[in-house]
């Protein structure tokens, strides 16, 4: 391999891919239309992407809350600061762990299936069929999935946070005997609605958009073969994880 092609693989190709993804997004956004069909199709996608991810999100949320509280309790008790347990748990959930973990689970559960679905639609000429019926596939296939992601991910993040707090309460209040009202009282006194909570929700919406955009894009641009679709689903998970963590850092830097 020559140096040129190595540079190509490392730098030029990813930049090209990004360019294509952005162009794809602009095309999709420019052809947005809002009507009854779009609304119903978006709701259908909220079901497929959101409701079907609910169970994994609830289970993961509960155990993340449990283990996080366990770790925080152990650390905080060394400083005799266990009264800060609720605050530390709620802040780390609302600001970081809720949005980031939820969207990564979402990419694995819903993102991959969106990618595979669109890839298969391409392979079986369903997208061509739409085109031929004078139905814009951007409007019919891409738009509802983009919107559904922006709606579903924040809702999933909220469910995740509630379940994680529940896990925290189960561990600290029921197992470690920390006073329940003071646990909540500390959270209420220190977690800012705007900066901490709504900031986290803003992140959730941005991540939801990122995850659904990438899932749809990789499906759309996949090679219409079994191998191509398999590769595209892998790309969806990896790229979403990296993009989300990178965006998370940038957003956090601006929001703090």
């Amino acid at each position: 391999m020559t140096t040129g092609s190595v540079t190509g693989k490392l730098f030029v190709d990813p930049v090209k891919e990004m360019g294509r993804a952005v162009l794809f997004l602009f095309t999709a956004l420019s052809r947005m239309r809002f009507g009854k069909t779009q609304f119903l199709e978006t709701m259908r996608q909220v079901y497929f992407m959101g409701v079907r991810s609910l169970v994994i999100i609830m289970i993961s949320g509960f155990f993340v809350g449990l283990v996080l509280t366990l770790q925080l309790y152990d650390t905080l008790s060394r400083f005799g600061a266990t009264e800060a347990l609720g605050t530390a748990l709620a802040l780390s959930l609302f600001r970081e762990l809720g949005p980031v973990l939820t969207v990564i689970l979402f990419a694995g559960r819903a993102g991959t299936s969106v990618t595979a679905e669109i890839g298969l639609m391409k392979a079986t000429e369903q997208l061509d069929a739409l085109d031929l019926m004078a139905i814009d596939p951007m409007e019919r296939i891409v738009q509802p999935r983009l919107l559904a992601g922006i709606l579903a991910v924040p809702a999933l993040v909220l469910v995740f946070n509630v379940m994680a707090l529940l896990g925290g309460v189960v561990f600290s209040v029921f197992m470690m005997g920390i006073d329940g009202p003071s646990f909540w009282g500390n959270i209420q006194a220190t977690v800012a609605l705007g900066r901490d909570f709504m900031g986290g929700m803003f992140k959730a919406a941005v991540f939801g958009f990122l995850a659904s955009w990438l899932a749809v894009y990789f499906g759309w641009s996949s090679k219409p073969t079994g191998e191509g679709v398999a590769l595209a689903t892998t790309q969806t998970v990896i790229t979403t994880a990296i993009a989300v963590l990178l965006t998370d850092f940038i957003l956090s830097a601006f929001m703090l």
């Binding site: 069909t37 079986t124 000429e125 369903q126 061509d128 069929a129 031929l132 019926m133 004078a134 139905i135």
Partner: peptide
């Protein structure tokens, strides 16, 4: 123009009925 694609290209998430109804509902 009606076009029959190679393997039919039916929408797999819709029933036969809804597949046929789609262009009517859309247009």
């Amino acid at each position: 123009i009606g076009m029959l694609l190679q393997n039919g290209a039916l929408f797999t998430d819709l029933t036969s009925f809804d597949n046929v109804a789609l262009p009517l509902r859309e247009h």
